[in-house]
Amino acid sequence: MPKPLRYVNAVAQALNDAMAADPAVMLMGEDVAAAGGPFKATRGLLDAHGPERVRDTPISEASLVGAAVGAALTGMKPVVEIMFMDFVTLAMDAVVNQAAKARFMFGGQCSVPMVLRTPHGGGLNAGPQHSQCLEAWFAHIPGLRVVCPATVADAYSLLRAAIEAPDPVVVVENKALYALQGDIDVNAPRAVGKARIDRAGRDATIVTYGATLYAARAAADRLAAEGIEAEIVDLRWIQPWDEEAVFASVAKTHRVVIAHEAVQAFGVGAEIAARIASDAFDDLDAPVLRVGAPFMPIAFAKTLEAAYLPDADRIVAAVKSTLA
């Protein structure tokens, strides 16, 4: 029986195993080498794989991500770390105009096998520029894939899947989960775009991803105490998201709540709700509801941040509302 790992160690393990399996895999990012990364997700990798493949970069997000694209076009499989997802704004040209489009605009001549790992999410009182959940931006860009592992097992498996995928993948890790403990299975299937039924239920479906999975689990426990059996779909992949799994759950429960930590307006939930409305309309016995963050920047103060983050209370209320 393997010893439980922390989420952040599962990330490091996945990076290590991927580098051991494929000499083209390299790491780039601010303080990822000697310092082991600000969250220690790359600890030990410099010693294991050397300074050429584990590169500390200057604080130059735009060019380091652009360089990863160039390296990917020249035979490498770079895994870039952006220290906080908020900083990805500086690298948007590289991600959106270069990485996402190279395959398409060059007529399929190449793929861009790179990964951009970055932590999102609140819970650490890191304030408005260190806590945002911006994954919907990337899910909106054709050519990118987006994944958000919620469990320790997925932190390993989905990062391996992302590194093995031929196209650019944005791997979003919720920093509040880094200390989470769990087991990994290095041989688990590593499919792109497959959701996971976290809990089966018949009365309503909660579609979620990332750290909100834990709020959904707490909500489902409380609902179960009242005789309401909620099914939880952990999306895992946001682009492509598992329509088949979501529609199958809707066909079973006829009620859906989509919960995520990102701002609700124009978020991932909006796309899923719209697709359910168009493609699973006749299965619905209640309006599709969303639970997300309010339309304001995330605030610093403990009380403000706590009020901001979607929690079990709001998910319980939403599920009940679909059952009204």
Binding site: R53, G66, A67, A68, G70, A94
Partner: peptide
């Protein structure tokens, strides 16, 4: 590739050089 974004080829070439060096 040519590039529609002024200056965007610079990081691509930097990364390409990085790959040449690493490989």
């Amino acid at each position: 590739g040519a590039n529609g974004i002024v200056g965007a080829g610079l990081p691509l070439a930097t990364g390409s050089a990085l790959a040449h060096q690493t490989r």
